[in-house]
């Protein structure tokens, strides 16, 4: 009789203990995602109106680089005089990615030999409209590119 009682209370004790452990784990499981959620991710902006395109000393005059801007390629060009310009790198003809040609100082699309001048306007070839131009500005060590407002 006494033995049965102790075994029963032992069982109760065991259930209580496991419930307590379970609850702690459960609360941890609830809290962990929440804590992770409230800490902002590395890229702390949801939509990119501005993006870091390059470092200040990255591009020498008369050169360029392409970089992703809102999921699409964009091109940052450093003119021979040191000035920066940025455009969408998506050709307005068939959406190929354009590149900067140091030899003739124009933006060039390899797909159909289209040429754009350094203002993004079509100077020859099939594209029906100019490349979208972006604003470029420097912030500390970074060259930032943003959508024109």
């Amino acid at each position: 009789m006494v033995k049965e009682k102790t075994s029963k209370s032992g069982r109760r004790h065991f259930i209580g203990w496991s419930l307590f452990t379970g609850l702690v784990a459960f609360l941890g499981m609830l809290l962990y995602p929440v804590l992770r959620f409230i800490m902002p991710p590395k890229l702390a902006e949801s939509s990119q109106n501005t993006v870091k395109a390059a470092k200040v000393d990255e591009l020498s005059p008369n050169s360029a680089k392409t970089f992703p801007f809102n999921n699409k390629p964009a091109i940052l060009i450093r003119l021979p005089n040191g000035e920066y310009r940025a455009f969408s790198a998506v050709c307005t003809h068939l959406q190929c990615t354009v590149q900067y040609r140091e030899d003739f100082k124009m933006i060039w699309c390899a797909c159909h030999n289209a040429k754009f001048d350094l203002n993004g306007n079509v100077s020859s070839g099939p594209p029906p409209s100019p490349l979208e131009a972006f604003d470029v500005f420097t912030s500390g060590e970074d060259i930032l590119v943003s959508k024109k407002v």
């Binding site: 992770r36 959620f37 991710p41 890229l43 949801s46 939509s47």
Partner: peptide, 30 residues
Amino acid sequence: LLLLYYRPTAENAFESVEFIMTSVRFGWLI
């Protein structure tokens, strides 16, 4: 929690929800 990242404008709302789901850790869960 969602308010921490959501932006209520036509230009940014969709992108901010996308951001929550792709970039914020456990954003998809919340």
